Amino acid sequence: MQNLFDVDPIPTVKPTPIEYEHSSDTGNTALWIVFVIMLVASGFFALLSWNIPVNKRLYHYVTTVITITASLSYFAMASGHGVSNHCFEERDTHGKIPDTYHQVCREVYYARYIDWAITTPFLLLDLCLLAGIDGAHTIMAITADLVMILTGLFAAYGSAETAQKWGWYAIACIAYIFVVWHVALHGSNTVKAKGNTVTKLFGSLALFTFILWTAYPIVWGFADGGRKVSVDGEILAYAVLDVLAKPIFGLWLLLSHRRVPETNVDIGGWWAYGLSNEGRIRIGDEEN
């Protein structure tokens, strides 16, 4: 017969060890591969500019800066110098037993956000130059883009248990809408002055770019945001998007630029000749 004073043991919960979400050899290999792609693309874009007058190399310079920056970013991430651990507490439920918490540490590649803060304004500059968008809309588009990137970084380091993370994410999405308005919608009107060929080229490049850019926050939501995708999956998804958005975009733009004279942005003066030559008569500029 059971003693009235006997009681069942109090159920206990074994603490969950720290959970680490890190990349494996698969993710690290992908980072090195994209680094090589960006480096080769940079060399090729620079090569394309050699037989073009200096005052007509603006697209080449801007596009080369994009891939050079991306190559540095991927080198930093692949070598382990562009990443940090973001640690936070996650709730564990146990039915009738009080909830417990365990710590999760996930890798955040902050070098990627530094890359985007430099390269995406240049990508927008390429599109704005192609469409003939005025300086006011160009500056506002770049400003909205920087807000989008920085708030995305804040969201990546936000607390998963509060609305802080998703608040920053919402601000980034709103900023993206302003980018689309200033570049895609406004540019579709200004580019018409350059003729049908340039209009079609801008429309294709802009659509291609904004489809890719829409995919970035979706990947973020499943990766850094909801943690539904592993770090390796995150690396592979961003790798594909970055290759399409930078080397492929740049190749498309520069090859089209060579075939379509109407895309030229002729910038003489200081850009091509320096301040010491301002005011001088230059003979045969087109042959330089």
Score class of each variant (00 low, 15 high):
Ser188Gln: 10
Asn189Asp: 11
Tyr169Asn: 14
Thr209Arg: 01
Thr197Trp: 03
His182Phe: 15
Asp232Ala: 05
Asn196Glu: 15
Val231Asn: 10
Asp242Val: 02
Thr197Ser: 13
Lys194Val: 02
Leu207Gln: 06
Lys246Ser: 01
Glu262Val: 07
Tyr169Ser: 15
Leu185Tyr: 13
Lys192Leu: 15
Leu253Pro: 07
Val231Ser: 02
Pro261Ile: 03
Tyr169Thr: 13
Phe202Ala: 03
Leu207Gly: 03
Leu236Val: 14
Ile218Thr: 05
Gly233Val: 09
Ala184Val: 14
Trp252Glu: 06
Phe210Glu: 00
Lys194Trp: 02
Val265Met: 11
Ala170Met: 14
Gly195Pro: 10
His257Ile: 04
Leu201Arg: 14
Ala245His: 00
Asp242Gly: 01
Ile171Pro: 08
Ala237Trp: 06
Thr199Lys: 13
Ala175Gly: 08
Ala170Pro: 06
Tyr169Leu: 15
Leu241Trp: 05
Asp232Cys: 07
Trp252Lys: 04
Val183Glu: 02
Leu253Val: 05
Ala184Glu: 08
Ala206Val: 04
Ala184Ile: 06
Lys192Cys: 08
Trp168Leu: 10
Ile248Ser: 05
Asp232Arg: 07
Pro261Asp: 09
Pro217Tyr: 07
Val219Ile: 13
Ile218Arg: 09
Val219Asp: 10
Trp168Gln: 03
Val240Gly: 07
Asp224Gly: 02
Val191Ser: 03
Leu236Arg: 09
Asn196Leu: 13
Lys200Pro: 01
Ile235His: 10
Phe222Met: 11
Trp213His: 08
Arg259Val: 08
Arg258Cys: 04
Val240Pro: 05
His257Met: 06
His186Met: 09
Asp224Thr: 00
Tyr238Leu: 11
Phe210Ala: 01
Ala237Phe: 05
Ile218Glu: 03
Asp242Trp: 03
Ser204Met: 13
Leu185Asn: 08
Trp220Asp: 12
Arg259Leu: 15
Thr214Asn: 02
Gly195Asp: 04
Ala206Gln: 04
Leu241Phe: 01
Ile211Asn: 01
Gly226Gln: 09
Asp266Asn: 10
Ile171Gln: 08
Glu262Thr: 14
Phe202Arg: 10
Thr263Val: 01
Gly250Met: 04
Ile235Leu: 03
Val219Leu: 07
Pro247Cys: 00
Val231Gly: 02
Lys246Pro: 00
Ser256Pro: 11
Gly226Pro: 00
Val219Thr: 12
Gly203His: 11
Glu234Pro: 00
Glu262Lys: 13
Thr263Tyr: 05
Ala223Val: 06
Leu185Pro: 06
Tyr216Asn: 00
Pro247Phe: 01
Lys194His: 06
Thr214Tyr: 00
His186Ile: 15
Ser230Val: 11
Phe202Ser: 04
Ala172Met: 14
Gly233Trp: 12
Thr263Arg: 02
Ala237Gly: 10
Ile248Asn: 06
Gly203Ser: 08
Thr197Gly: 10
Ala170Ile: 14
Ile211Phe: 03
Ile248Cys: 13
Leu212Gln: 01
Arg258His: 15
Thr190Lys: 09
Phe202Asp: 12
Ser230Trp: 07
Asn264Leu: 03
Gly233Thr: 02
Thr190Met: 12
Ile248Phe: 15
Asp224Met: 07
Tyr216Arg: 00
Pro217Ala: 09
Ala223Trp: 13
Thr209Asp: 00
Ile174Cys: 12
Ala237Asn: 09
Val180Ala: 09
Val243Thr: 14
Gly167Leu: 11
Ala223Cys: 04
Ala239Gly: 10
Phe249Cys: 01
His257Lys: 14
His186Pro: 06
Phe202Ile: 03
Ala206His: 01
Ile235Ala: 07
Tyr238Trp: 12
Asn196Cys: 03
Val198Ser: 07
Ile171His: 08
